[in-house]
Design a protein around this nucleic acid. Structure first.
Lengths: 132, 132
DNA sequence: CTGGCTGCAAATCTTTTGCATCCTG
DNA sequence: CAGGATGCAAAAGATTTGCAGCCAG
């Protein structure tokens, strides 16, 4: 199933603007912010507005097609890769590398204070080769 | 060494406002936001300003007396507990529980893309007993 | 056709900054 | 008594919202 076929099954309206945003996100490993997306897609759609970018991101988030990352303290970043993985963040330039590795993160019940634990995500910190 | 003794050794000026903020943070497990701190300390110092709260938090962060948490997408939260630990976040009410457990999170070099890895932090997600 | 989407602007929320004054060390 | 801290207000960024018109399904 191609990416566009997949989106047609989501019951979200596929406007030209949304298709452009989806095209920008498809396979994108840069973990872009809303502004990154806006800037890039604006070239093709000069009238594109932030509202449309945020609206589309919200729709994709609700359909679990993207993840909202809280890695950057000043703005949200988005990840079109929804397969389970972790992130390694450069404390210098804020670049992000995906970490595909399974860790055993089981918590015994005496640690969880009655929570029902449903997921986890590891942030690794470091310096990239450029910033080092 | 008491908390205040510890702070006197940090070379930050201890004004009454800062002492009030430090008092609020001392032993605080609620992971408060700047606004939480402002609201609470304002009762004692009606002229307290956000600038002072943020200034103090910045100073404490630089002296590694507090951690800035990016757990909440809408605002920063602060943790006066700087001992290594992880966090379990309720996806309903955003309450946070500390997780004191050591995990083996070693990364082989082929995963780190030349990064020098210096630290890590796990976010666990779940529902607290109230929200469940 | 019609309900959801778009674009624009205004509003909101968090955080930062400029600056005159104050006060800790 | 000097340099950092305070308080206030204004500015800056990111995100959200209101609304009139538009268009995909």
């Amino acid at each position: 199933m191609t990416t566009m076929e997949r989106y047609r099954h989501l019951n979200i309206k596929l406007t030209p603007q949304r298709i452009a945003i989806l095209g920008y996100l498809d396979g994108n490993k840069s973990h872009p912010s809303a502004e990154d997306i806006y800037k890039s897609v604006s070239r093709e759609f000069p009238t594109m507005s932030f509202a449309t970018v945020y609206n589309t991101l919200e729709a994709l988030k609700n359909k679990e097609q993207i993840l909202e990352l809280k890695i950057d303290p000043s703005k949200k970043r988005y990840d079109p890769d929804t397969t389970p993985h972790h992130h390694l963040i450069c404390t210098g330039c804020r670049s992000i590398v995906d970490i595909y590795k399974n860790f055993n993160l089981d918590l015994s019940e005496d640690l969880t204070d009655g929570f029902d634990v449903t997921g986890s995500h590891i942030e690794f910190f470091g310096k990239c080769s450029t910033c080092r």
